[in-house]
Every structure is written in structure tokens, then in C-alpha cells.
Simulated assay, not measured.
Amino acid sequence: MSQLSVREATDDDHEAIVDLLTAAWGGSVVVAHGTVYDAATLSALVAEQDGRIVGLLTYTLADGDLEVVTIDAPARHLGVGSALLTAAIGVARDARARRLWLITTNDNLDGLRFYQRRGLRIVGVTPDAMDAARAVKPWIPATGDYGIPLRDELTLELRLD
């Protein structure tokens, strides 16, 4: 197996990005903190191995903050998510961002473990936020990972200043 690399996405990656987003999110539309994103149009980092895209992180950079909108590593426990998050932190530092932050859901226990082990902290909880998200994406399930009711958004951040 060849080495994993992470790079900024290019226009040539669009089809692979849409495929990854569709597999992970049911399409490219993502709803977080009351904002609707078309993640396929955002800035993105892709992880590559053996000439294939094996992971994706989409983000926005505004007001001195880098928001991770999506992070997807379909093959887990191979370092793809870590490599993508490390690269995003590098992008944030290069942009002199104050923080890197993201939204996840209350059922994402694996994600919470992943983010906290990499220095992010829970800084906010928005109870019942998923009800509003379902108004835009009605196919968001009522029950998430591990049979946990999918209700709340959690905000995590890594301070960079």
C-alpha cells in the first residue's frame, strides 16, 4: 500500500467529491447550525492513496475561523481522518485563523472520541437542532449511531491563537 497524501481539491476531483458526499450524507446538501451548505461547492481537502481519493474534508474560512463542514473517511482506522484534520489545521494556521471548529451530532460517539483525542473541545450544545435540520433534509433519521435518538448538535473547537 502506498503512502497517504492530502492535497487541496481541484475541479478534476468534483465527481469523486460528489460520490463521497452522496455515500456519506445522502447528497451534497449538509445542514449545520441552521446553515444549508452545498458541500460539493466548498473548499476541500482530499486524501489520496494509490491514485484514489480515500477521504474528504470540506470547509469554509470566514471571520478568522475555519469551519469543518464535512469530514469523511469511508475506510476507518487507517489514518485518513487524522491526516485530513491535520491538513485542515495547517490551512487554518496559514490563514491565521483563531480557531478550527465543527458541528457534530449527539449520537456521533466515535466522532466525539476522534475529535477530542485530537485536541478539540466541546464548547456548545444546541438541543433539538436536528428538528430544524429535518425541515430541510427530511431523510435525516430519527435514530442515529448506536440506536441513540438523533436530536442535538454539538459544537467542538480547537483554539489556534
Score class of each variant (00 low, 15 high):
Gln3Asn: 10
Leu4Gln: 09
Leu4Phe: 04
Arg7Ile: 02
Arg7Gly: 00
Asp11Ala: 15
Asp12Glu: 15
Ala16Lys: 09
Leu20Met: 03
Gly26Phe: 12
Ala32Asn: 06
Ala32Gly: 09
Ala32Tyr: 06
Ala32Leu: 10
Gly34Lys: 09
Gly34Ile: 07
Thr35Met: 11
Thr35His: 11
Tyr37Lys: 05
Asp38Ile: 00
Asp38Gln: 07
Asp38Asn: 06
Ala40Cys: 02
Leu42His: 06
Ala44Tyr: 01
Glu48Pro: 03
Glu48Leu: 11
Gly51His: 03
Arg52Gly: 11
Val54Arg: 08
Val54Gln: 09
Gly55Met: 02
Gly55Ala: 02
Leu56Asn: 07
Thr60Cys: 02
Asp63Lys: 10
Gly64Ser: 05
Asp65Ser: 15
Asp65Phe: 11
Leu66His: 01
Glu67Cys: 00
Thr70Phe: 07
Ile71Asn: 08
Asp72Lys: 12
Pro74Cys: 14
Pro74His: 14
Ala75Ile: 14
Arg76Ala: 12
His77Asn: 14
Leu78Lys: 14
Val80Tyr: 04
Val80Gly: 04
Ser82Ala: 07
Ala83His: 00
Leu85Trp: 08
Ala87Pro: 02
Ala88His: 13
Ile89Cys: 12
Gly90Trp: 02
Gly90Tyr: 07
Ala92Pro: 08
Asp94Arg: 12
Ala97Pro: 06
Arg99Phe: 04
Trp101Ala: 06
Leu102Pro: 04
Thr104Trp: 13
Thr104Ala: 12
Leu109Asp: 07
Asp110Leu: 07
Gly111Met: 05
Gln116His: 08
Arg117Tyr: 02
Arg117Leu: 00
Arg118Lys: 04
Gly119Pro: 04
Ile122His: 06
Ile122Tyr: 08
Val125Cys: 01
Ala133Val: 12
Ala135Leu: 15
Val136Asp: 07
Trp139Glu: 15
Trp139Gly: 13
Ile140Phe: 01
Pro141Ser: 09
Pro141Thr: 11
Ala142His: 14
Arg151Leu: 04
Leu156Phe: 08
Arg159Lys: 15
Arg159Trp: 14
